[in-house]
Design a protein around this nucleic acid. Structure first.
Lengths: 235, 235
DNA sequence: CGTCTGATTGACCAGGATCAACGGAGGTGG
DNA sequence: CCACCTCCGTTGATCCTGGTCAATCAGACG
């Protein structure tokens, strides 16, 4: 009833189910550009993999019916689900710009998807829009997606360590020291953001200090043992 | 040291700090389109508001230096931080397409931003790219952004209720019943996604059933009292 | 009918929230 | 220049939510 799976009518009616995005992107691109190949439809059954982490990304997929989960495997070998995807959702865009899948996609039930050769899509988009805008959009997608990184982190150590490493990485990208910097936000703000009480943030930082992992002076942080921190972050 | 705040050199050197995005979007657009207005720079001091939730969105902002937090206010009047934004980050894009800010932006320290009149930007982008692609991109941004909705949810009730409401909304958008549907994933998957044990998901659902909030039959869900569920979700 | 997987329920325990007290830094006013 | 105040961070004590382990149960399927 909900997802009229396996209904051949759905497959015939090209992209009629891509409601959420006001029509299927692939076909819109096709209508705009004459040399774009006809998007193909594929059927996956329950427990089928659409793609694996690390694989070369050959296609982008738009879910037409059914549902698909994407997940990564963490340090300990456990699955961490990133998201559930239903009709209209796009799969694989976070594999750009390196064409390497950063997650695994797994069909939870019989699902039909519309697949677009990624190389062709990039060519097409570069005809449509300026390259800098393309890069910007990709970058933006990845940035937003990276918020998900916190959802699975369970305990206080995981969360705070991940937070520190992300702050460190941000400073590195900006050309500043990634081992010694000032946090601009209060313990309260950090706790609020991480879903912890400010006291817990404080305690966790104190423990890291005792372990010789970081040095602390109020909001001034020195990362002493990055490896240890990464271990605490659990990824 | 980290953010050379208030340094007038930074303000003179147009968008030199927008490293992460390989240059400032606003100026790239300006270079592409002759009629696009020169982006303006603004300075905010610690505890200044860049914009408030509900305000009409006049400008997009690109952070050049300093740091800014964005947050929403939940049912109970508490602040829930969505993200911290540093140099290179874009502020306000989630206010599209309705031009109404869905969060408040607050400067944590002295911060300089580059502001772009949003109406002008939209006009410019519509010259650059096909409208359907523009709509698609906006829609995609919002979708990714909406992952953040879970970060603030603290307890099991919050999380599970929010999850159910999102599932309900997804079904509504697809033209299916939003009060009675099948979940395609196991309790294990739900728990993994929400950062809860599967047993906790089960218990929480059972409690909701006892409260007359939902009906349950394995993966088949009937939402009986949406208002109650929204109260549990806490937003 | 037996097996297997997934969901539910119970018992117990630990991690983190809450409440409370304290200390230090910075700001303000006399 | 110093006394005072306020805000923020730290630390301690206690309680409770939710994780873990384990047993049971209900469907699905061969």
């Amino acid at each position: 009833m909900i997802n009229n799976i396996g209904n051949t009518e759905v497959l015939k009616d090209i992209c009629s189910t891509c409601i959420r995005h006001h029509g299927c992107v692939a076909h819109k691109i096709k209508n705009t550009l004459s040399n774009f190949p006809t998007p193909k439809h594929q059927l996956f059954r329950a427990s089928d993999y659409i793609f694996h982490v690390g694989d070369k990304l050959e296609n982008l997929y738009i879910v037409k019916s059914g549902s698909i989960k994407t997940f990564i495997i963490n340090q300990v070998g456990e699955e961490q689900i990133l998201n559930f995807h239903g009709p209209g959702d796009l799969l694989g865009i976070d594999a750009l710009p390196f064409h390497k899948n950063i997650c695994t996609a797994f069909s939870l039930e019989t699902s039909s998807v519309c697949s677009i050769p990624i190389v062709k899509l990039e060519e097409a988009l570069k005809q449509l829009i300026p390259p800098w805008l393309f890069e910007f959009a990709i970058d933006k997608f990845k940035q937003e997606n990276s918020n998900t990184y916190m959802l699975g982190k369970k305990n206080a150590n995981n969360r705070v360590a991940t937070f520190l490493l992300k702050a460190s990485e941000n400073h590195r990208v900006l050309g500043c020291s990634n081992t010694e910097f000032d946090l601009s936000m209060s313990r309260d703000d950090i706790g609020n953001y991480l879903g912890l009480a400010s006291e817990t943030v404080s305690r966790t930082l104190t423990n890291m200090k005792k372990d010789g992992c970081v040095k602390l002076d109020r909001r001034h942080i020195t990362i002493v043992d990055t490896q240890h921190l990464q271990m605490l972050a659990g990824s």
